[in-house]
Computed example of a mutant assay.
Amino acid sequence: MRTAVFPTWARKCALMLVALAAFSASAAEWPEKTVTVVVPFPPGGPSDIVARPITTRLAEVFGKPFIIDNRGGAGGNIGTDLVAKSAPDGHTLLISSSAPIVINPSLYKKLAFDPAKDLAPITMLAKVPLVLAAHPSVPAKDLQELVALIKSKDGNFQYASSGSGTPQHMTGELFKTTAKLDMIHVPYKGSAPAITDLMGGHVPVMFDSLIAILPHIKAGKVKAIAVTSAQRSPQLPDVPTFIEAGYPGFEAYAWYGFFTRAGTPPAVIDRINAETLKIMKTPEFSQRLEEMGSAFVGDTPDNFRAFITSETAKWAKVVKESGATVD
């Protein structure tokens, strides 16, 4: 009796078909249990605000519980590390700000995880411009006058942020290096106490996200000097961008993204991506984006990865040039 011998290419094709069938089955069965969505910051912050409508709708779509696990600490590193070391099966997800993904790898001397290797991007969820705001007593009506004022202080000028390593902090450092300024960073534990001190005149200026600072600008308690987006914000149409004010290429955002463990089957990632983009187009989430000052930014995993790569290089350069560190 003869034994059938298959060419090498046929065997390879058969193995590929088996693998594809396994991936398809895995995606069709996912989720098989409760899905944990880690938010590496305390409840109530922007990452948490973005996460809640997403997880609620995903639970409805897939018929399994999606539970938010707030794991704050170490600038988002603790919760991010938890996902980086989870099983690559799509049952542990991450919704985070940009800091642990593209800033902390350069800012911290040692990290227990490598975002580029340990995490798989799903999609960006929001992209929020920052505002350079000043106390009304600061004698500068525009960015040029503020830069001149800061330079006249010979290093005796402070700027506040919502914490070391945050996009607000690093945007301040980008401002320093771009405009060749000498300023003292005053970090706070969150936006709220920083804004309180700004309104009280205890610090003269700060960068913060549009959603956090806008109510106080409208109330006249602080004044907006410039926004960090490429175009003017619809919420602040009279406030120029840094680019308009003479700093070409100056862009910075507080963005929020959706991730899972690297090695998760691509078919599972694609399912999560597809359903998340549908959720992002609902009136509820669209309103949330508008309130935050973000346009729709849902994208493919590959495009999101390319954006992350460019952001990582950008902030690594800022960290190096500024000498910023938190260790």
Results as ranks from 00 to 15, higher is better:
Val131Met: 13
Lys221Asp: 13
Lys320Cys: 08
Gly79Leu: 08
Arg305Gly: 07
Ser97Pro: 03
Asn77Thr: 14
Lys153Tyr: 08
Gly155Glu: 13
Pro193Thr: 00
Ser229Thr: 14
Thr312Asn: 06
Phe175Asp: 11
Ala87Lys: 03
Ile213Gly: 07
Ala84Asn: 01
Ala316His: 04
Pro265Asn: 15
Lys176Tyr: 07
Arg288Pro: 09
Leu125Asn: 08
Ile217Asn: 06
Ser137Met: 06
Lys33Ile: 13
Pro237Phe: 10
Gly323Phe: 11
Val205Glu: 11
Leu214Gln: 07
Ile184Cys: 02
Pro43Cys: 10
Ala262Asn: 06
Ala19Trp: 11
Phe207Asn: 06
Gly200Gln: 11
Pro43Asn: 03
Ala25Lys: 14
Asp48Gly: 03
Pro237Tyr: 14
Val147Gln: 11
Gly263Asn: 03
Ala19Lys: 06
Ile184Leu: 05
Val128Pro: 07
Phe207Tyr: 14
Arg57Glu: 15
Asn156Tyr: 00
Phe62Gln: 09
Ile95Trp: 06
Ala179Asn: 08
Thr55Lys: 01
Ala316Leu: 05
Ala21Val: 11
Gln144Glu: 10
Glu275Thr: 12
Asn273Ser: 13
Ile78Asn: 10
Leu82Cys: 02
Glu284Val: 13
Ile211Asn: 15
Thr196Val: 03
Val319Tyr: 15
Ala324Ile: 15
Leu277Lys: 15
Ser98Thr: 00
Thr264Gln: 11
Glu291Arg: 09
Leu289Lys: 09
Lys320Ile: 10
Val297Phe: 03
Leu107His: 07
Lys320Asp: 15
Pro121Ile: 05
Gly246Ile: 09
Leu289Ser: 12
Ser26Ile: 15
Ala274Trp: 07
Pro105Phe: 04
His169Asp: 14
Phe6Asp: 15
Ala306Tyr: 11
Pro187Trp: 07
Ile67Arg: 01
Leu149Glu: 04
Lys117Glu: 10
